[in-house]
Design a protein around this nucleic acid. Structure first.
Lengths: 141, 141
DNA sequence: AATAAATATTTGTATATACAAATAAAGATG
DNA sequence: CATCTTTATTTGTATATACAAATATTTATT
């Protein structure tokens, strides 16, 4: 059934969740070849761009809770894609060479995903929608 | 950090998920007094409106997988809010009197949630956004 | 009628996420 | 300097969700 056919099509809770699940699934498809999920991927991208980044900063950047960040890092550590260096109460996260070697594939995943949805929704429309959702998200408590 | 300040503000994966989490949290706040979460609530609303509704139909209506529907029903059954009646390979789900007695409170939760976000986003804007997200969701595979 | 295919549901298992509490370190205050 | 408070991170636990496989039932086909 299409979202627009559900009795809850007019409810923001329902539509935002259904939409996010669909987007998640599409993203997952493009990240699957790499062996990790979109959320791990986005965290790893930040780590690659900011070597030594701390969990608190990652939590802010990705808008996830610190505990979720810890769990994501643990997983990436198991796959030998990042390492944690402890220093006092802070933790610094670094990408491994293995992760750095994956950069081209990661860029390909991002491009594939972006191309997929902008082909479906139109490049301007999808940008506009993304922007709009971001703005509305900021307005919510 | 605001969504619009994250480096991923232009990514549909990121924004749709961050947005859904925020909306979920807001909805949760209004459903909490009732003792169940929004997804259980929406399922229960369908059951109240369609006595004897089957899991497959619920999965379509709520755009969740059948296994998720089973899990949601199990939880509501534990709380004595619905009962399952098996008939051959199908299952019919009915709301209990206890659930029916909660209807006014459920309506209040829905109203409270809707009022909250339409106050923040404006009634027209929030309706338009919901509609837009539903439309885009339909376009995705 | 017997077997095969399709359908409905549940179960086993895995994932991402969050909250609350625990831990540990740093800074502030008396 | 000793204690208190704040800050950073992790851990224990719980939730919603999904996929794949199992189960059970109905329908179709030969």
């Amino acid at each position: 059934m299409k979202t627009s056919e559900s009795r809850y099509r007019q409810c923001l809770y329902f539509t935002s969740n259904a939409f996010a699940r669909k987007v998640e699934k599409l993203a997952l498809h493009y990240w699957k070849p790499l062996g990790f999920s979109p959320s791990h991927a986005y965290l790893l991208m930040v780590v690659l761009q900011e070597p030594g980044v701390q969990p608190t900063r990652l939590a802010n950047e990705l808008q996830l809770t610190p505990s979720t960040i810890t769990r994501l890092i643990e997983k990436l550590e198991e796959q030998a894609l990042v390492t944690r260096v402890l220093d006092g109460k802070t933790t610094m996260v670094y990408a491994t060479d293995k992760a750095k070697a994956l950069l081209p594939d990661m860029q390909a995943a991002i491009d594939g995903f972006y191309t997929a949805y902008s082909k479906i929704l139109g490049p301007e429309a999808s940008c506009a929608l993304t922007q709009q959702i971001a703005t509305v998200a900021d307005a919510l408590p």
